[in-house]
Computed example of a mutant assay.
Amino acid sequence: MEAIVCTDFGESTVREVERPDPGPDEVLVAVDRVQLSVTECRLYQGDPIAHHETVRARLEAGDGRLFGHEFCATVVETGAEVGDLAAGDRVYAPGKLPCGSCRYCETGHEEYCPDKRGIGYDLPGALAEFAALPAAPLRAVPDGVSDAACAALQPFASALLCALEADISPGDTVCTVGTGVMGYACGQLALSLGAGTVVAVDVVPAKLDRAADRGLVPVDARESDPVAAVRELTDGVGADVVFEAVGGDQSHGTDGDGPLAGAFRTARNGGTVVQVGHVVGDLTLTPRHLRLRNVDWVNPARGVRQVGPNADTGTLAAALVADDRADIESYVTHELDGLAAFETAVDIGLHPENYDALGPAQLRL
């Protein structure tokens, strides 16, 4: 079978490799689509962000089967110990693999495990025609989810974690700073959880148009001051919850014009800022600003967690998309054929403005 093999940062090849056999707790899947996340694209180029040390170590060990944690695949074969999945199921991977032996895991708090392993980073991902994947992080998707939406489900499931941990109350005013894949998802989920008004802030008109189509109030940050716009909507009070969904390089978290500083200014006294985007490097904070206004800064858990006896965040995310209670497929604007288009997909992920792309590119296998 063919697979992408990375030989160094910024270097890859399509190589013929042996088709794997699933272990007892694994499933063999035929990969239908892969969506390259922006994080993966930046890691491939060598940026020192999350997972960089893991990627570097695997490259140095000559183990270049990296990336591909956002995918749609069909189960071909199941290991002897797998009971929740069957051949023919379409799956995606909202979860990670906790170590199972630390104090958190032993006491039922796997979401806080410090040694989680992730598909595509610690383990080979789905940038191949077939993959043998652990069954535990996978979830089946219903028929109402298209292949394109399935490949885009993982970040939506992560956004669901963010929205649930925001503790939104009915009637809340919510603001999402940045309406990329995650911010757009958080805004829609806030409405589903009962928010009265959700403000979507961005500088890309096409993203703001889609936000408006889903019931969000668009604010173009090139033309208006988002903080002032939210204050005006709330009679000077501010937003109950603000999602900071830009991330990237920010020198100061509470001062200046950066997205996080703006998010803190947008939140009301006693409000909440949820950190959705990955901030690169270190931040300077003025704790007094947060303490005086009693603003909570929430950094959500990763992976999958139960939301009740009938569902976890992985299955609920798929159900919301299947029932059109949330839109993610409109951000799939660039679909490429075959693994040979990997480098083009990376470039789209790194420079979406050059391609008029709203979200990451998908590879159709």
Rank of each mutant, 00 (worst) to 15 (best):
E129F: 10
F156T: 03
Q154I: 13
G171S: 08
G120Y: 01
L161I: 12
P124F: 11
V141H: 01
G144A: 05
V145G: 09
E110V: 08
V145F: 13
D122G: 03
S101F: 15
A135K: 03
A148P: 07
P142L: 03
P137T: 03
E129L: 11
A126C: 14
L191Q: 07
Y121A: 02
C162T: 09
E165H: 05
Y121V: 06
V174C: 06
P98C: 06
K96I: 12
A163L: 08
P94I: 04
A185W: 04
S101H: 15
L189G: 04
P114Y: 00
C113A: 08
D143E: 14
Q188V: 11
E106V: 10
P94Y: 00
V141T: 03
P137R: 02
Y184V: 07
E129P: 05
E111T: 15
D172C: 10
C99N: 01
D172E: 12
K116C: 12
V91N: 05
D89E: 01
T179L: 09
G118T: 15
P170M: 13
G100E: 00
C105F: 12
G180H: 02
A157P: 09
D115A: 14
A135D: 01
D172L: 10
V141M: 06
T179Y: 06
L164P: 00
E165W: 00
K116T: 15
C105A: 10
K96V: 14
D147S: 12
S146Q: 10
Y92E: 10
E129T: 14
Y184N: 08
A132G: 07
V145D: 13
P137C: 06
L127M: 04
D89F: 02
C113G: 05
I119Q: 07
T107Y: 14
I168G: 00
D167M: 03
C150P: 12
R103W: 10
T176V: 05
D143M: 01
Y112I: 09
G118F: 15
L127Y: 02
D147K: 11
A163F: 11
R90M: 01
G125K: 02
Q188R: 02
T179S: 11
P134Q: 03
E111K: 15
T176M: 00
P170R: 11
L97H: 01
L191S: 08
F156C: 06
V91L: 03
P155H: 11
A190G: 04
Y121D: 08
D115Q: 14
A152N: 06
Y112F: 14
S192K: 13
T176N: 05
A131S: 04
C175Q: 10
C99A: 00
A140E: 05
D122T: 03
Y121K: 13
A152E: 05
V145E: 13
A148D: 15
R139P: 03
G118Q: 15
V181E: 11
L160H: 00
V145M: 11
D89N: 09
R139G: 02
S101Q: 15
S146W: 07
Y104Q: 14
L133Q: 09
E165Y: 02
Y104V: 08
L161G: 12
L133Y: 01
G183N: 11
Y184E: 04
A126D: 01
R117N: 06
A166M: 00
G187Y: 07
C175R: 06
C99P: 00
T179K: 08
A166Q: 03
L164S: 02
P134W: 02
I119D: 07
M182Y: 11
C105I: 13
G125E: 01
E129V: 11
L189S: 01
V177D: 09
A151W: 11
Y184S: 06
L191C: 05
T179R: 09
